[in-house]
């Protein structure tokens, strides 16, 4: 049986994160080339999940380039966002009420 259509996008083969192509519920999600990731919590369209484990202090790679440093260890399938990724340039300003990007889907 073939895998379902991918709902995770890999922008560059060097990337440590996938991008959600739709709202994804907790559980199995599918990247290209048969990659299967156990997504730890629901994420909405456009958000990132770890492709493989990322250690605290490691650069997080998207589009094949660094988009900042991990502020804690991140497990494969975990939502990668403001709670565990920080800019190496300027801090990100947030409204705590809306920053999560996690829905009930």
């Amino acid at each position: 049986m073939s895998d379902p259509n991918p709902n995770l996008l890999l922008l560059s083969e060097h990337d440590s994160v996938f991008v959600a192509l739709e709202a994804i519920a907790r559980g199995k999600a599918y990247g290209p080339d048969g990659a299967v990731v156990e997504v730890a919590s629901a994420v909405t369209l456009g958000h990132k999940v770890a492709r493989y484990p990322i250690s605290k202090g490691d650069k997080v790679i998207k589009y094949g380039v660094s988009i900042g440093s991990a502020t804690q260890d991140i497990a494969a399938g975990e939502h990668v966002h403001v709670h565990n990724l920080r800019s190496d340039y300027t801090a990100t300003h947030l409204l705590e009420e809306t920053a999560g990007g996690v829905n009930d889907a």
């Binding site: 990100t92 300003h93 809306t98």
Partner: peptide
């Protein structure tokens, strides 16, 4: 310039939409 101001060119809605850092927004 932005470091002096204490903000990046980054609005709250960017984070809600899945962007985490200014360099990520920049690449897009």
């Amino acid at each position: 310039y932005y470091a002096t101001l204490g903000f990046g060119s980054f609005a709250a809605g960017n984070a809600e939409g899945g962007l985490t850092t200014i360099e990520e927004k920049s690449m897009g």
